[in-house]
């Protein structure tokens, strides 16, 4: 009796295990491949970058055309509080963006001047490492993408980003959007967002909205691999700053002074 029962239990157990194998396999085999599958070759050949000419930017005081353009087309809500603020591009005083450039004795007066900051689209983006679901990842052309469909809202990417480039939707943003731009989705509460280098516009051969909106032509955008591109020409033989280059994130947004 003893032996029989044991034998039966063993067989039953093994059968059960066998039955779970197929669905188990199905579940795991359905998982998408680790890296987003090869992007079109066109993308892989490019490496988008941006240059900000600070002197040109400062020539018009209190201009915020680039911010308005970006926030309008991306449906960035204006929540009116610092606590829940969402921003893709915003001004920060020079001395805070570049704390390593001490200006004490240089006689220059620009340490309080605003510097436009956005997501640096790092070449070695820290945020990507931390995301538990690959909701954020680096595309072949260097754009650090955000998939709002997949973000679970753990905010670990925000902890990972040393530039504070990421914002979180603390509440449903839709009531705070003045006029919804139809071609870009709004976001739900509970997901993280940031500048995407106007990936949806590049796709249609348009320049990023901020670059297009700047009357002073302070912003230049283009393919860093192409010596003839706007961004490369803007950077040529100039003094270039990057934000916190010592962290090894290799930002692709350059500041020219």
């Amino acid at each position: 009796m003893e032996l029989k029962r044991r034998g039966f239990l063993t067989i039953a157990g093994l059968t059960l295990l066998g039955l779970t194998a197929k669905p188990g396999w199905d579940i795991f085999s359905k998982v998408e491949l680790p890296e987003p599958s090869p992007t079109p070759e066109r993308l892989a050949k490019k490496k988008w970058g941006m240059a900000v000419d600070l002197k040109k930017c400062w020539s018009l005081e209190k201009c915020k055309d680039c911010i308005d353009a970006c926030h309008r087309i991306h449906n960035v809500p204006d929540l009116g509080t610092l606590k829940e603020e969402i921003k893709w591009i915003w001004p920060v005083p020079f001395e805070k963006v570049f704390p390593e450039h001490e200006l004490e004795y240089s006689g220059e007066d620009y340490h309080q001047k605003p510097v436009m900051v956005f997501c640096n689209q790092c070449d070695d983006p820290p945020c990507v490492k931390y995301c538990p679901t690959r909701a954020t990842w680096k595309r072949k052309d260097g754009i650090v993408m955000m998939d709002f469909h997949r973000c679970i809202g753990c905010r670990y990417c925000m902890a990972g980003c040393p530039y504070g480039s990421r914002s979180f939707n603390w509440r449903d943003p839709r009531p705070f959007i003045k006029k919804v731009h139809l071609e870009f989705p709004t976001r739900t509460k509970g997901v993280v967002e940031k500048c995407n280098f106007c990936e949806e516009r590049l796709n249609r051969n348009l320049l990023p909205a901020c670059v297009e909106a700047c009357k002073e032509k302070a912003l230049s955008f283009g393919d860093l691999k192409d010596p003839g591109s706007d961004v490369r020409r803007a950077l040529y033989h100039r003094t270039i700053y990057q934000r916190l280059p010592e962290l090894g994130t290799k930002p692709k947004v350059y500041y020219i002074l």
Binding site: P36, T39, W137, R139, L182, F184, N203
Partner: peptide, 22 residues
């Protein structure tokens, strides 16, 4: 979004942009 391919080739070989909104 994830693969950057936005052209859909339908079964009748017509091409469409993959976009819910557009």
């Amino acid at each position: 979004i994830r693969k950057g391919r936005r052209t859909y080739v339908a079964s009748n070989q017509k091409r469409y942009t993959m976009s819910l909104t557009r």
